[in-house]
């Protein structure tokens, strides 16, 4: 197990929880898709995992992780290379190996020419690529990715999928929040479906299909059925 999350309640202010009763586990080499409608609580779940929520009742077991935020964050006044230097100083890896991996990733993501530039000056897609590089260079036990495909061109999209596959083979767990359901359907081993702050489904595509009574349905269709049903149930309760 590389991540265990048991959230009783989490929110931005006391007495106003955004998440309730969310519990899941991620095992080594497992890619789990965190899906749900806008405002369902996906980002709050990720923030809770990172310990960035002010009000959290529950238990998070998470060590040596990497994080790709939805909106890239860089340290102002540092070049991309200097971000790599800083990352290197914080992790226990062989410098030579790290530099080789870095060169390889720079080439793969086509950022070689701008490595001595401030990432603030990059386009949105380039910033996302830089964030992905920082995450993969960390060789973490688990990668937490919040909308990692956002702003990527199809070529880089493909490269990211290959890298995700490599990381899985290395034994790293991956929790990926995404709205790109057709891709998630193809690559994820398991799905966590969150709606209105609750975990309404946790399982493989087959489990999700059974739960939504759509034996051959796509993840997109199942998603629609389950989230609509959850909202209807909630309205009936009210």
């Amino acid at each position: 197990m590389v991540l265990h999350c048991r959230i009783e309640e989490a929110g931005y202010s006391k007495g106003d929880p955004v998440l309730k009763h969310v519990e899941f586990t991620i095992r080594p080499g497992e890619l789990v898709g965190l899906i749900g409608p806008n405002g369902a609580g996906k980002s709050t779940t990720i923030k809770s995992l990172l310990g960035a929520m002010e009000h959290l009742h529950g238990e998070i077991e998470l060590e040596h992780y990497s994080y790709i935020p939805e909106r890239p964050f860089f340290y102002p006044g540092l070049t991309l290379m200097e971000h790599f230097h800083f990352l290197l100083s914080t992790i226990d890896v062989d410098e030579k190996q790290f530099m080789e991996d870095m060169e390889q990733l720079l080439k793969e993501f086509d950022l070689e020419k701008v490595v001595h530039h401030y990432p603030d000056s990059y386009s949105k897609g380039m910033q996302q690529k830089a964030m992905i590089m920082l995450a993969f260079l960390k060789k973490a036990d688990i990668h937490i990715m919040d909308e990692p495909f956002m702003g990527l061109d199809p070529k880089v999209f493909r490269k990211l999928l290959n890298r995700i596959d490599e990381e899985k083979r290395r034994g790293a767990g991956i929790l990926m929040s995404t709205h790109v359901l057709d891709t998630a359907e193809k690559i994820c081993d398991r799905f966590l479906l969150i709606s209105t702050g609750r975990l309404i489904a946790d399982g493989t595509l087959q489990d999700i299909r059974e739960k939504s009574h759509l034996p051959d349905g796509s993840l997109f269709d199942c998603f629609h059925i389950l989230t609509e049903r959850e909202i209807d149930d909630r309205l009936e309760t009210v």
């Binding site: 290379m81 200097e82 230097h85 800083f86 290197l88 100083s89 490595v115 001595h116």
Partner: peptide, 19 residues
């Protein structure tokens, strides 16, 4: 300009200090 390092030694302390 070329992101030269300030310290040869690589450690969390030196990394943060350089940053």
């Amino acid at each position: 300009r070329n992101s030269r390092r300030l310290f040869r030694e690589i450690s969390p302390e030196k990394g943060l200090l350089e940053l």
